[in-house]
Design a protein around this nucleic acid. Structure first.
Lengths: 233, 233
DNA sequence: TCACGCGAGATCATACATTGTTTGGCGGAA
DNA sequence: TTCCGCCAAACAATGTATGATCTCGCGTGA
């Protein structure tokens, strides 16, 4: 019944330009984020067009859009390549999150209604119930948790930025498992956050979120590092 | 001889994806930012193609790119419209700057070389020499000043974000004049900033930058409000 | 090593098909 | 008469197809 499929905060473009449900854009984007298209892989327009059963025109437009979002690098007359979602990329993204999310949180604390808090508690209950058993589900719920806080923020730019970054991090972390230490920390920080919101302590909430995002980013980076090391051996 | 034409920090998208396409992209973008294309104005592909002497294909790609950057809104089957660069837009942007720039500055303070400081002082001297006589020149110099601080930051994402926002604010503020109060404040804050960098006081520098960006944003917003009020009468 | 030529593929132009949106007029109802 | 809903034509977005031209990377031969 409560389907917490992660969805972007309202007002954020669902980038569904084409009539087709799954546009070429979305397909390519998924392929990149999910890692099906490898880092620096060449994106040949004609190939993509054939693979997705379209002509070249929609593909080219999709690539431009992806460039605008930073998933693809296009060099003049040399075509498009998959932007590597490497450690630097992830670090850049989460560091920006550390700067932005506390501000969003601060606003939320001051604007939160009882319904908001109930919603947070409900989601948190589901998170605890799941207890990382289903990592995918955890990811969805965790995203929903933070979406509740940010979705109504007046700064749509900031919210949209958060969402885009979130999508990338979510996709990357999907490849890894949570360490025990991280699981405990996530739970504790979420509970702390709810307490701070209830107590209307914006500063503390902001500080907790900063720690939360920082920790999450570091965790993913560690995983990537470990994965890379394992791969190299 | 010292031409401080504002240029993006190294490694930031030179958006020169295609020979011809780049120009179409740039031209449309300029038209939007400079206000030659009005808010919500409809962007008809065929018209744009004709106006810029190209076919529709590059135009369509340019529009997708602009959509990715938030300058254009595309609704399915209804085409593209100019995204209004209104007060909300500007506020969103400068608020993000207030969050990000202090962090960039903090890093700069710790990494600054003597050459960097000399560069800052040189630019500041030019700013003082110009003393707002030529607003355009001031804008260029001011941008150069901050670029010195951010251009080598390891977080390319953050630097790029700053640059894109900067471009928008620069274009918007080009329509207005600096108030006397703002002129004095800008000078003082720049000088303060240099002092903090010299003294290696990262926190103070960050705080000054936060104030600087906040003030700059507010100033532009005030101007926009005044302009709008004058226009309405 | 270095110049040259070739081929893959990007970029652009053009023409056309299809589909969804807009608009202006027409006829009937109030 | 005036208002309203409906419809068709104009308009334009979107996608397809094809060909021309240009750039870049690579292999070959001097």
């Amino acid at each position: 019944m409560n389907d917490f499929k992660a969805r972007p905060p309202a007002g954020i473009d669902p980038i569904s330009a084409s009539s087709e449900g799954a546009s070429v854009y979305e397909l390519i984007r998924e392929d990149i984020i999910e890692g099906r298209l490898k880092a620096n892989e060449r994106l040949v327009v004609a190939d993509l067009a054939e693979r997705h059963g379209t002509s070249t025109n929609p593909v080219r437009e999709a690539l431009q859009l992806l460039r605008g979002e930073g998933f693809v690098i296009i060099s003049p007359n040399r075509g498009a390549r998959v932007r590597p979602i490497d450690q630097d990329f992830v670090r850049d993204i989460y560091e920006i999150g550390v700067l932005i999310e506390p501000a969003l949180t601060r606003w939320f604390v001051n604007m939160a209604t009882n319904e908001d808090i109930e919603e947070l508690e409900r989601i948190q209950a589901l998170i605890e119930e799941n207890n990382f058993a289903d990592p995918l589900k955890h990811s969805e719920l965790d995203t929903a948790f933070h979406t509740v806080m940010y979705q109504r923020h007046y700064n749509r730019h900031a919210a949209e930025l958060w969402w885009k970054h979130r999508e990338v991090l979510r996709a990357v972390s999907r490849r890894f498992n949570f360490t025990l230490a991280r699981r405990i920390t996530v739970m504790r920080e979420h509970r702390q956050l709810i307490e701070h919101v209830k107590a209307q302590e914006a500063d503390k909430a902001a500080e907790t979120v900063a720690r939360h995002v920082e920790g999450s980013g570091r965790h993913i980076l560690e995983q990537m590092r470990a994965h890379k090391a394992a791969e190299a051996s």
